[in-house]
């Protein structure tokens, strides 16, 4: 298999969140991102964070059906990591920054902006989930995130039956949606 096919395979795997693909991408690219961050005023923790975030940007790209890989996977990851790190440094007020690039860089501003927008809505969801409190949070997470059946949930949360659990879930859902949309419309 040549490099491009290998890269495409890894991306398909990542889109399905396959551990193998994540593992491979991690192993072949982490050192590069770490070098970038360490060489530009960052530490090991920063490097680990930036790499994970770059991986999420790559995932968002991979699940898009219109996605085409126009460069090496490595180049894409480097460019994204570089962009993310530059933004982070700017936020930390380290001005007058130039990176010492040792890899090719392609423009990824749009992808990163798209990613940030997504992150903003995730943050709103996360905050809304926290605000509704327990047992609502666990109940909704069990249903929507862990995709458990109502029957299972009823037992786990000590409801007398599935219908009762469903009513509770509905009440929690209304509160969650209200909190979510109240914030969400600001970022649209």
């Amino acid at each position: 298999m040549n490099n491009i096919d290998l890269d495409l395979d890894l991306l398909k795997g990542l889109a399905k969140q396959e551990s193998n693909a994540i593992d491979q991408i991690y192993r072949s690219n982490f050192k590069m991102v770490q070098k970038l961050v360490l060489n530009n005023k960052g530490n090991a923790d920063d490097a680990a964070d930036i790499f994970q975030e770059s991986m999420i940007v790559l995932y968002e790209k991979a699940i898009n059906p219109q996605f085409e890989l126009n460069c090496q996977l490595k180049t894409y990851i480097y460019s994204v990591a570089r962009r993310l790190w530059l933004k982070k440094l700017q936020q930390m007020q380290k001005i007058g920054l130039q990176t010492n690039d040792f890899e090719q860089v392609i423009p990824v501003e749009e992808d990163v902006a798209h990613h940030e927008h997504k992150q903003a809505s995730f943050l709103i969801m996360e905050n809304a989930m926290t605000k509704i409190g327990e047992p609502c949070k666990s109940l909704l997470e069990a249903f929507y995130i862990n995709k458990k059946q109502m029957q299972e949930i009823a037992i786990e949360f000590n409801y007398t039956n599935a219908d009762n659990a469903k009513t509770q879930k509905y009440k929690c859902l209304v509160r969650l949606k209200k909190l979510f949309f109240a914030e969400y419309k600001h970022i649209q």
């Binding site: 969140q17 551990s19 994540i22 991690y26 994970q52 991986m55 999420i56 995932y59 699940i63 997504k118 809505s121 995730f122 969801m125 996360e126 929507y144 995130i145 995709k147």
Partner: peptide, 13 residues
Amino acid sequence: SKFSDYKQLKHRI
């Protein structure tokens, strides 16, 4: 659903 995907991905990473 996107949020749940994202949580799962983060967990796997």
